[in-house]
Design a protein around this nucleic acid. Structure first.
Lengths: 299, 299
DNA sequence: TTCATTGTTAACAAATATTTAATAGTGTTT
DNA sequence: AAACACTATTAAATATTTGTTAACAATGAA
């Protein structure tokens, strides 16, 4: 099947005449006739009832017309959006990220992005509340987990592990838990979002899976605060690897239960709609992907 | 641009390799390569970043991919629905029509339809309430006016005039109104739908337009009953031409105010969704159109 | 009936796509 | 580090598709 035949078909419907269509497209009537025949043969459907003096569309043709127009529309949209994507990275990018990711990991990367694209400006909303995304005027959000709302477009950036960790001082004072069950006797640092406490910590090794409900005397809805508590030796935290990467590296935090795996989470870049995927969004996505696929954050 | 190139593009994305794509489609790698180049040149967009050993899609390509898939989908849908439309007219057609149209004009036409298509059966819901359409299990409805709900698919069947009419006996007894204003002193027969009284009758001639609020001692929500009252000489009715065509012809009713035009109404065949446009629906639509374009009902 | 116009058909010319075969590049392996 | 194996590209040759020309058939209007 041929695209130009489809455009021709639509023209024929619009003009209601093969000759007129031929004139408009600067081809011969014979060409139009054979192209139409070709299309009909391919579809195995008669699109028009023709006499030598008039042309009228069949119900089948009418039916096809609708989808045909739709298809050509999509294609035009595709052409435009592909073009737009390769356009210049300019304007203001309003980005929402969780507090920890935003304040620490992301900041240097954003510097890089702005250096590379001098015409781009950033408006960064830092916060863990999901509602930010709807309430604040934001173009994209970087969040753990897929969006529940299927109307949104999301790009998977990376798959990251969760790490159980604490400050060396804390371990010296309270001892190191060797099995997940021992966590219940420790002070754990909890994150809360939308009123929900994340106090179920999951583990598995070759033989078993564990779902531990931990106890806590410190809870916050700010991931950065949870990390600061951990660094200050206030208890044990259960965070994604990206968030505590540098602290693990410089020794402020150490990993606990290294023989147990915790479920991974996916980091997603979420866009309210396909129209808002601007060149700037793509640039950010590519930057994040390159940074996070550099294997630094996937131990 | 070429459709097969689009399918090829999608294949390349899926396989992630030109060679593998070539194998699957039984063409040479060189062919795939040049086809891809052709597409990229046409779009003026680079779809893949290629090295001699690997292939990865560009953000632009990714962007285009979405719309490309969508377009090919539409086209496949078009092919299917065109095919389906030319299929056999079978099954049960559940049709809802206004009471008058259903009881009189439509009945012989439906006989014709069933005769022509022996495998078709009809389930006819007669009633003037719009809610029938939603409450009853109905495939299509024949109604005056366009549907407000834009999610529905509607086919315009005909444009019909409204006629003011009465029985000859009534005119003998009460006199014939010569101007629209004189209607206010007559007994008018009203139609009511969804609690709304249709007591505003509209007229125009070369110089003026008139909007007359008529008085009535007989109101019904059934259009057929309104017509029966008119035939029985109980008052003046304001109906669409189709509804009273036969009574005008055989003299049971006569047209009043022939020098004044009343606004036309469009008769629509309404379908809840595009999926329900079956061959039977198309057959009915074509029948109605042929019957109503026979100029019998557009004086 | 005649006439002008419209769509069709067949042979042909032009444009386009595909293959063949040779070439160059890159990630992997030894 | 060098050879290898596989991948994509390119150019010329070939095959296919598409459009043109020209003669023809059909139909609605005068």
């Amino acid at each position: 099947m041929n695209l130009s035949d489809l455009q021709l078909f639509i023209r024929i419907v619009e003009t209601g005449s093969l000759t007129e269509t031929a004139n408009q497209l600067n081809i011969t009537t014979a060409g139009v006739s054979s192209a139409l025949k070709r299309l009909e043969k391919n579809l195995e459907v008669q699109l028009f009832i023709r006499s030598t003096r008039q042309l009228r569309i069949t119900p089948q043709g009418e039916q096809f017309l609708f989808h045909c127009r739709q298809a050509l529309n999509s294609l035009e949209q595709g052409r435009l959006s592909a073009h737009q994507t390769q356009g210049n990275v300019t304007g203001k990018l309003r980005l929402s990220v969780s507090s920890d990711l935003g304040r620490n990991t992301l900041l240097p990367w954003i510097d890089e992005l702005l250096e590379e694209h001098p015409l781009l400006s950033i408006d960064l909303t830092v916060g863990d509340s999901v509602s930010d995304f709807f309430l604040e005027q934001v173009d994209i959000a970087l969040r753990y987990g897929k969006p529940e709302d299927s109307s949104m477009v999301s790009f998977k950036i990376a798959t990251v592990k969760r790490i159980t960790c604490a400050a060396p001082d804390y371990i010296l004072e309270h001892g190191e838990p060797i099995t997940p069950e021992q966590l219940t006797t420790h002070k754990c640092l909890l994150y809360r979002r939308a009123g929900r406490f994340f106090d179920q910590w999951h583990y598995s090794n070759l033989t078993n899976t564990y779902k531990i409900k931990v106890e806590s005397n410190r809870v916050s809805n700010d991931t950065d605060i949870v990390k600061r508590w951990a660094v200050a030796g206030k208890g044990i935290a259960y965070r994604s690897y990206i968030d505590i990467y540098s602290e693990l590296k410089n020794g402020q935090l150490v990993q606990l239960l290294p023989n147990y795996e915790s479920p991974t989470v996916e980091l997603h870049l979420i866009c309210p709609s396909r129209e808002q995927i601007t060149p700037a969004v793509i640039a950010l996505r590519e930057l994040l992907r390159s940074k996070l696929s550099a294997n630094v954050f996937a131990p």
